[in-house]
Design a protein around this nucleic acid. Structure first.
Length: 922
RNA sequence: AGGCGCGUAGCUCAGUUGGUUAGAGCGCCACGUUGACAUCGUGGAGGUCGUUGGUUCGAUUCCAAUCGCGCCUACCA
């Protein structure tokens, strides 16, 4: 084995072998366990969030597979309609081409081409992460099978009246020329203005003042509204306004939508261009005047001077014209929430169009109940509030998109505008008795990508066919995802799953936190703070990192700033850490739903952990190769053997429990601490006096068995988190535990059981004594500045029978680990030489000062300890003196405090004794 | 406006149903390299657990208020 852990060398070796051996496929007849990967965008790349999520899913998958479950981690990607279409359109634009010039079919061919070309990046990255997904079952939302599922779902929902087509106000992206669902619109506060206009009454008797943030929409006003109980305007209701700049008269209406406290209490109503106004318009049967084209320029419904102007140009013109007419009262600066398309970044326009909608109410009801009844559990559970909040206020879902890339809507129109829905044109004709001569044309639009994603948990398993996979794996076990996607995806999967499968799509939803950068900023391309997981795995130099962060920016002017920040933060680039270290880091940081600041120091620490494990294995192998090893099942004889097995059992129990409740961070910590602080720091050190001493062969053989058994078991425990290094070491170590590794893999070995390593309290108590003995000496050594290698003579004073018995049994460990020259028990009554002291219960461990220790230093050291104990003592004494404490606290708490008190009192007594002895020296 | 979360050592974070002398890693200080590992070892320093009240014999933990930060949802023209 190499002297240091070299991740690149070992990680490349294993993935292909696992895959070729078919280890990723569900096998056996255990309980089914299934995780659906949240499908990433097929043309995208894996970012830190994915890598984190994939680590969690892979750890769970490997864990359950080792536990003997029939485990499937289902991979795949989605087609990301808008995003992908935009990318390809941008590519075309660089060649001076547009989608419209190319035509639908040719364009789609280009998209498929792009998908083929870039579409396997994610797959390669997943492989590098060690993800044990079943590639043989990989799916893509635009696959034949999944497309069938989409059509089937659409037709069934339509047949039940749960999908309808209607002219509604929707969020319109004037750049992409498509409708968007509410969720694809992001609102953010921006600086704007509030314009106040005078609207004259038709009879010329007066005017009202209305305020607006969007002056151009006044050209589409069809009413002015006031609150029905507003005394200021009560006599105006029913009168008319002469709408300026137009030749229209519009009514003044009363509606309690108006807040009389806000502004003037008069509101202009533009039903065709504002969601609230639309509602008001519906209630009052107001006409809808659409004044915009699909580009958000003014159309022929606007007065002639404004036609053809873009909305912002029109705004300036309207304001100027009203000002010229003396109708501009004032302009105030105003902050307002501006809705923008999440893809185009353009301000979306409420726009009246024909769209397809899913009636959400009836689907939401059982989906809410599924969570309320506990059939689906959120982890952490408070996310259910977010879910309920949205589900109780759910709006109908606009599912049609005016795009080409996606599932074409299975609806056909005849020349009279009648619409027919069916799985195919043939079916439509058959169902509706349409003659072959009747011309039919299919709806031009496609479905929202999330519509197909909502079917993912069952479409990937073969639905609508009743496949064995569906039978076996649905409902799936757990969904692992980020909170940002609860509405987009989680809620919709639950609705569709219950609708079409009659059962929930998953039993648990594990919501993890967001990966942020070192400063706690969200990672994003435009901030230039993204990290590619592969750069952490393989390392990268500064120039490559700068290049990666500054190319392909949406806002190229940010490049210099990003470059500067990157050079500052990573002056030497990023070193190679390896996949296992990255995974261990993610797991260690995966505490309950909390966001994660990704810190390079942390991953470095876990790479060091891998190195530690690696070297522990080196030590074990060096000591067992070619040597006699006790047969499996031989009773451990030595204290260290009994102790480490006991500790291992408890660690397994802890890890198993923590994984069971999705606390990968705590599972990780238990493993880290066992490996480093117990196995390496103590057990390996304790094995040295046995193996290197002149002890008997049987004991050595038993120690070798424990060395290998514990390591082999530990590797299996760690494997779900760090698959590569554990496989590599396991292949070398397992044969020494009587296992065959011919063609075997650790990933198909059983997960360790705590019951195989029962607790041994006697051994733990005895070893604790040994440890405290050694630590006492080390402390003196450390604080007295005595060379670590210098052998020390030691006297024991007031050693009781137990101490003497333990000393008799374990002296060799003390000698070795504490680097001692001699240990002598002082007979009762005999005065010890001047010494530095450590306390172990009632016993004093004395290191004679002779030339080694400075009296003043030892006095200071003792005083420091005395101080510390004394503070604790006062605290406990205060408690015990409190009558109420004695009266109310449980007996065991009181007993514990009393014990503590006695212990500390004794300790102080001993310290004082030593101090007195030192004084006597002066 | 409503909802959720966070505030513990210089930094990043644990802290299970109230009872620990409040922990870990990194960083820091001192010493150390014939040894499985310097990607290491040994020892050490470092915290009035955001603030203020309350409940309690006892609060980092429960409750209320408050300050600061973050996120989500919905928004008044």
């Amino acid at each position: 084995m190499d002297k240091t852990y070299q991740p690149a060398a070992i990680e490349r070796r294993w993935y292909d072998r696992w895959e070729q051996a078919g280890h990723f496929s569900a096998a056996g007849d255990g309980a089914p366990y299934c995780i659906m990967i949240p499908p990433p965008n097929v043309t995208g790349t894996l970012h830190m969030g994915h890598a984190f999520q994939d680590t969690i899913m892979d750890a769970l998958t490997r864990y359950h597979r080792m536990r003997g479950d029939r485990t499937l981690w289902q991979p795949g990607t989605d087609h990301a309609g808008i995003a992908t279409q935009m990318v390809v359109e941008r590519q075309l634009a660089t060649q001076g081409l547009s989608r419209l010039e190319l035509g639908r079919e040719a364009f789609l061919a280009r998209v498929w081409e792009w998908k083929e070309q870039s579409g396997n990046t994610i797959q390669q990255q997943l492989r590098r992460m060690g993800s044990s997904v079943d590639w043989s079952r990989e799916r893509f939302t635009m696959d034949e099978g999944l497309s069938q599922a989409v059509i089937e779902a659409f037709v069934r929902l339509h047949d039940e009246g749960l999908i309808y087509r209607g002219k509604r106000l929707v969020n319109w992206d004037p750049v992409l020329h498509t409708a968007l669902s509410d969720l694809e619109v992001l609102s953010a506060e921006e600086d704007g203005h509030m314009w106040h206009f005078r609207y004259p009454l038709a009879d010329g008797s007066a005017h009202v003042v209305v305020a607006t943030t969007r002056p151009e929409t006044m050209l589409g006003d069809t009413a002015v509204a006031v609150h029905p109980e507003d005394p200021r305007y009560a006599d105006l209701v029913g009168k008319s306004i002469r709408l300026p700049l137009t030749d229209r008269e519009i009514p003044i209406i009363a509606d309690d939508y108006v807040d009389p406290e806000f502004g003037t209490g008069c509101v202009k109503i533009t039903p065709a261009h504002d969601f609230n106004d639309y509602e008001v318009g519906t209630r009052h049967a107001l006409p809808l005047i659409n004044i915009f084209t699909i580009d958000a320029a003014l159309n022929e419904n606007a007065p002639a001077p404004y036609r053809g102007l873009g909305r912002y140009a029109a705004r300036e013109r309207v304001v100027a014209d009203l000002d010229a007419a003396g109708l501009l009262e004032r302009i105030d600066p105003h902050k307002l929430m501006v809705p923008r398309g999440d893809r185009s970044g353009e301000v979306v326009e409420p726009y009246l169009t024909d769209q397809w909608f899913v009636r959400a109410g009836p689907l939401a009801k059982p989906a809410i109940e599924a969570v309320e009844s506990g059939r689906i559990r959120f982890i952490p559970e408070n996310w259910d509030k977010t879910y309920y909040e949205w589900m109780h206020n759910i709006q109908d879902w606009c599912i049609s998109r005016q795009l080409w890339w996606g599932h074409r809507i299975p609806a056909w129109y005849d020349d009279d505008g009648n619409v027919f829905v069916g799985r195919t044109e043939a079916e439509v004709r058959a169902r509706h008795g349409l003659a072959a001569e009747t011309a039919l044309r299919q709806d031009e639009d496609v479905l929202d990508t999330w519509f197909s994603s909502a079917l993912w948990p069952f479409s990937t398993l073969g639905w609508p066919a009743a496949t064995p996979e569906l039978q076996t794996f649905y409902p799936t076990s757990v969904l692992v995802t980020g909170f940002d996607i609860i509405f987009f995806w989680v809620a919709r999967m639950i609705m569709m799953g219950i609708k079409f499968m009659g059962d929930v799509p998953f039993r648990e939803v594990y919501i993890h936190g967001l990966i942020r950068d070192q400063e706690g900023q969200k990672m994003s391309k435009s901030k230039g703070n993204v990290l590619d997981p592969l750069d952490l795995i393989d390392g990268t130099d500064l120039e490559s990192l700068v290049a990666k962060r500054t190319t392909g920016l949406m806002q190229p002017h940010l490049a210099p700033k990003i470059e500067e920040a990157t050079r500052k933060q990573f002056p030497d680039g990023i070193p190679e850490f390896g996949t296992d270290a990255l995974r261990f880091t993610f797991a260690a940081l995966a505490s309950n739903g909390r966001d994660i600041r990704f810190d390079l120091n942390r991953i470095e620490g876990y790479r060091n952990f891998c190195n530690k494990l690696w070297n522990a294995a080196r030590y074990v192998l060096l000591n067992v190769e070619g040597a006699e090893i006790a047969a499996a099942g031989t009773e451990p004889s030595s204290l260290p053997d009994r102790w480490i097995r006991s500790r291992l059992g408890k660690t397994i129990a802890e890890v198993t429990m923590q994984i069971g409740q999705y606390r990968l961070d705590l599972a990780t910590r238990a493993l880290y601490e066992f490996t480093w602080n117990e196995y390496c720091d103590w057990y390996l050190e304790l094995s040295k006096p046995i193996l290197q001493g002149a002890g008997d062969a049987a004991e050595k053989a038993a120690t070798r068995a424990t060395l290998t058994t514990v390591l082999e078991t530990l590797l299996r425990c760690l494997h779900p988190l760090v698959p590569f290094i554990t496989e590599e070491i396991w292949q070398r170590v397992a044969p020494f535990t009587g296992r065959t590794t011919d063609g075997a893999s650790i990933m198909r070995q059983p997960y360790p059981e705590a019951t195989d390593f029962p607790g041994d309290e006697d051994a733990e108590r005895e070893l604790d004594w040994v440890q405290r003995f050694v630590l006492g000496i080390r402390q003196i050594r450390g604080e007295m500045d005595i060379a670590p290698g210098k052998p020390l003579p030691v006297f024991l004073q007031d050693a009781n029978a137990n101490d003497q018995a333990l000393l008799g049994k374990h002296e060799r460990y003390l000698m070795e680990l504490a680097r001692l020259e001699t240990i002598a028990v002082l007979p009762a009554g005999e005065d010890p030489p001047p010494s530095a002291t450590a306390l172990l219960g009632t016993m004093k461990i004395l290191v004679p000062m002779a030339g080694l220790i400075d009296v003043a230093a030892e006095r200071a050291r003792l005083n420091k300890n005395r101080e510390r104990v004394s503070t604790g003592l006062q605290r406990v004494a205060g408690k015990l003196a409190n009558e109420k404490f004695r009266a109310n606290a449980p007996a065991e708490v009181i007993a514990k405090e009393e014990q503590k008190f006695a212990g500390m009192e004794q300790e102080i007594g001993q310290i004082d004794e030593q101090l007195a002895r030192l004084d006597a020296l002066d």
